[in-house]
Design a protein around this nucleic acid. Structure first.
Length: 224
DNA sequence: ACCCAGGGTCATA
DNA sequence: TATGACCATGGG
């Protein structure tokens, strides 16, 4: 599964990234509920745009499930407009808030075992695997490894995975290759995104980047 | 003007 | 299972 035939392991990749970028400070949020909202709003959207939307919700006093459920759909859409897909995402936010309410609030969710929590989140229309795992890891501090497009791209170029595995297969592989430490999982995903933005998502090849010789290069280009 | 971003759903085959 | 269309804004 995961693991190049030779060379550094997942743990050493993490060390290199951490050495280069420090603690990425993920997930940036003022409180736990904001992580749930941000996880939905950031779907296929730039985080800077999500910040505008989050600021609007805070300013409107709508940073909690009941307040959001009390908003007219159109009003909610207007508040989150900068994060894109506002018609879709306003419905997804409502569904998420309804789920939180039905579970007895965030404390009710926090009392659930990880599998039940994750399955519950996945049952929400508009919450897929990555969004659910963002929430489970960053808002509820459970050791699940978040897989995203960057993770696939970087680690397939590094030769750790083929890249076309199912989400669950990939998640399972990462979780079993690492000690189940929540703080490490949180930082690791943040570091992957930080690195992708800093180097591996750009052309030409990133000279002197954190992963050095094993660093992947730009999209669609062969490794040096 | 074009490309993309911290995805997910739905219809179709 | 696996493609493709669709959703929409702001920054490079």
């Amino acid at each position: 599964m995961v693991g190049a035939a030779s060379g550094p392991g997942l743990r050493e990749i993490y060390e290199r990234l951490h050495r280069a970028y420090g603690d990425p400070g993920w997930w940036p949020a003022e409180d736990r509920f904001e992580i749930l909202v941000g996880a939905v709003l950031t779907q296929n959207a730039a985080w800077t745009n999500v910040e505008y939307a989050l600021a609007h919700l805070r300013a409107a006093g709508a940073m909690d499930a009941e307040a959001i459920l009390a908003l007219p759909q159109e009003r909610l859409g207007a508040l989150i407009r900068p994060s894109g897909y506002y018609n879709v995402k306003s419905q997804r936010l409502r569904a998420l808030c309804q789920f939180v309410r039905d579970a007895g609030g965030l404390d009710g969710l926090a009392a659930q075992p990880t599998d039940r929590l994750r399955d519950g989140l996945l049952s929400i229309k508009g919450v897929g695997r990555e969004t659910a795992d963002d929430i489970v890891l960053y808002a509820f501090d459970r050791p699940v490894f978040v897989i995203d497009a960057y993770t696939r791209r970087i680690f397939s170029r590094l030769g750790f995975v083929a890249g076309d595995e199912s989400y669950e297969a990939l998640r399972s592989a990462f979780e079993q290759a690492l000690d189940p430490d929540v703080a490490t999982f949180k930082a690791y995903h943040g570091l992957i995104v930080t690195h992708a933005k800093a180097a591996c998502n750009k052309r030409p090849a990133c000279t002197g980047c954190a992963l050095q010789r094993i660093c992947p290069v730009g999209r669609g280009e062969a490794a040096a």
